[in-house]
Amino acid sequence: MLLKLIEEIRNFEGIKRKSHIKIAMDILKNVQDFGKVVVGIGDDAAVLKSNGGYLLFSADGVLPALVREEPYAAGKASVMVNVNDIYAMGGRPVAMVNVVASKNIERISEILKGIAKGCEKFRVPMVGGHLHPDAEEDSLVVSIVGTAKRLLLSSNAKPGDKLIFAVDLKGRVGCKTVRSWDSTSCKSSEDVVQRLEILCDISEEKLCEAAKDVSMGGVLGTIAMLLESSGVGGDIFLDDIPKPAELTINEWLKAFMSYGFILSVNCNNTEKVLNKFQEKEITASIIGEVKEGKVVEMVCGEEREVLFDFNKEGITGSFRDGQSFRIG
């Protein structure tokens, strides 16, 4: 069973498509920093020094099939993924801009209605952008800026840390084009923002230094990318991963989540972190641990198999020759 699941995960397009990040890293490596950059290409957001704190920048392009088939959902998702990227870094969103491209005016309207709904839900303004009404292909890109007092970085996982999966299971299966779990549509804006603020609290109270949001790479892909970025390995305990009854474990491991985060936490702080989430009715469980080396293994009952060996291969290429994407 485990070997079959591993093969399925390794061939999952949500993970395989991350390999192209290496191209950007290689071509843009010499222009990432002219003095103020702390974190460059590779994390959930880029980080610049700013007035004793940090300025965060991120951008996400929405899957073309989702834009084409479910434009309203695509608009909502474009806001959600950017907001989650900022919170995953320990920051708070400030504002967004967008680029919408389509010849279909009705589709443009649905995309913008979805964006408006997302902005209302997450309480983050959409302050500008650009519209291509004559584009040959439909597309949607949103960029966001945020601020942070203290950072959660993908490159900060350390051997001995526990891997915590925090997820809102009080939701429903989401859009049809992409396998997803929607736990925001059924909640008030206040509840949604309060749950996201947990990440800021954890960061500012120095309970954690490493985190990443669960996006297109799924739960296992997200853990693997965090470990790769940190230059470490780890064990993932399949039986301990919480999931909703509506999805099988194979479906769940590849699902895109509106609220799902992986945190790498020192053993001394795990109970405090778990309690932070549970106080807001977020399911949080220890599902693995960080180890020396660069091998990621999955454990299920008595079975143990290699998921990724970063001595031989990479997902994003974000850790090379002992250097992660951290600059300052």
Rank of each mutant, 00 (worst) to 15 (best):
M96I: 06
D138N: 03
P125T: 02
G146H: 10
A157D: 04
A59F: 01
K103W: 00
G52R: 15
P71S: 12
E106F: 11
S139E: 01
R172G: 10
V173E: 12
S183Y: 02
E120A: 05
C119K: 02
P133V: 05
K149N: 12
R107E: 10
L169K: 04
E69L: 12
A59G: 04
F122A: 03
V79C: 08
V124T: 12
T177I: 08
G52V: 09
V97L: 09
K176I: 13
L163W: 05
G118N: 04
K76G: 11
N104I: 08
K121G: 10
A59K: 03
V99Q: 02
I105N: 10
L112T: 04
C186Y: 07
I111Q: 01
R68Q: 11
G91F: 07
E110S: 15
V97G: 14
G174Y: 03
T177N: 07
V67K: 01
E69I: 07
V97F: 04
S154G: 15
C186F: 12
K121S: 15
R150C: 08
T147W: 03
G171W: 00
D85K: 14
S50F: 11
I108A: 06
A148T: 13
K117I: 11
V97S: 14
N84E: 14
H132E: 07
S50R: 13
R68M: 06
A116R: 12
A135N: 00
R172T: 11
S109A: 14
V97R: 15
D138S: 03
S185K: 15
S188M: 06
A65L: 11
R172D: 09
P93N: 10
V142H: 01
P125Q: 03
T147C: 08
G91Q: 10
A88Y: 13
K176S: 13
L55C: 11
E120V: 09
G160Q: 12
A166D: 04
G52D: 13
L55E: 08
L151M: 05
L55Q: 14
S185R: 15
V178C: 09
L66E: 09
V167G: 05
G146F: 06
D60W: 12
L55V: 10
G75H: 09
E110Q: 15
Y87S: 11
R123W: 03
N98M: 10
L63I: 10
V67L: 03
G174K: 06
A73Y: 08
L56F: 03
L131N: 00
P159L: 06
V127W: 05
V173D: 12
N84R: 14
K117V: 07
D60M: 08
G146S: 13
Y54S: 12
K158S: 09
A101N: 00
M96T: 05
G75K: 05
L140Q: 01
E136S: 00
A135M: 00
